Amino acid sequence: MWPAGPYALSDELGDFTITAVGGSGTSDDPLVVMEEFRSATPATLTIHNAIRRMPRLPGDGHLMVLYLRIDILNNSGHPWIEFEFELQEMRDRPSTFGDGLSFDQRNRSPETIFSSAFARFHRDFEPYDRLLFSAGQVDPLSTVSFQFVITDFTPRWTFYLVQDPRIPSS
């Protein structure tokens, strides 16, 4: 477990290694996760919310907002031509509208989404919450940065971020 701000992150599900974590997850101090991928296969980051009380919304709702930057070293031996992230509230099950978890779905002009190596991104909502970066390349032994916001209007204490590097097909 890697603690940072009100979160604890884990590479317990394998296929990648967390090498450092810092920040608190706010807009002024994003949560920064440094990772190393030794293969070009999907890997799942486990995110635990360590705080006991979520911020309250007007009415009876709660809200979790996580500003996240992920820096990944491509040690897979293959170039990556796309990279996809998928949120899952329950492991191996697509995120749905009712779970409240998304890549800041309510924000129609997402200026908070960025990649150092990919020029375009596309968000898919329902029945999945996916963020696909394209129009770029990450060569072996190069590092790529991704920035985005995760929101959850019905927060759970644990959720998952599936990370999927895409290699050229032959």
Results as ranks from 00 to 15, higher is better:
F148I: 01
S76P: 00
D11K: 01
D152S: 02
S115F: 14
G61W: 05
D60S: 12
E126F: 14
Q147D: 15
R93H: 12
R53T: 12
S24C: 03
I72L: 11
R53Y: 15
Q88F: 15
T41F: 15
I47Q: 02
L45P: 02
M90Q: 10
I70F: 07
S145M: 10
Y128R: 03
R166S: 12
A43Y: 07
L66S: 06
S39A: 10
L63F: 14
L63E: 11
P110I: 04
F16R: 00
E111K: 08
T19Y: 08
F153K: 01
V149Y: 07
S27Y: 14
D99A: 10
T41C: 10
M64L: 11
E82F: 05
E126G: 04
G22Q: 07
F16S: 00
F146W: 02
D129H: 09
M64Q: 03
L101G: 00
M90T: 07
R108L: 15
A4I: 08
H78D: 05
R56Y: 14
T26V: 09
D11R: 02
T19C: 03
G5Y: 07
R130G: 08
T44N: 06
S10W: 11
M34Q: 13
F118M: 12
T143A: 07
D139N: 04
G77K: 01
E12N: 10
G22T: 11
D15A: 15
G136M: 10
E84V: 11
L9H: 02
Q137G: 10
L141N: 04
L13I: 12
L68V: 03
G100I: 05
T19G: 00
I81G: 01
A119V: 12
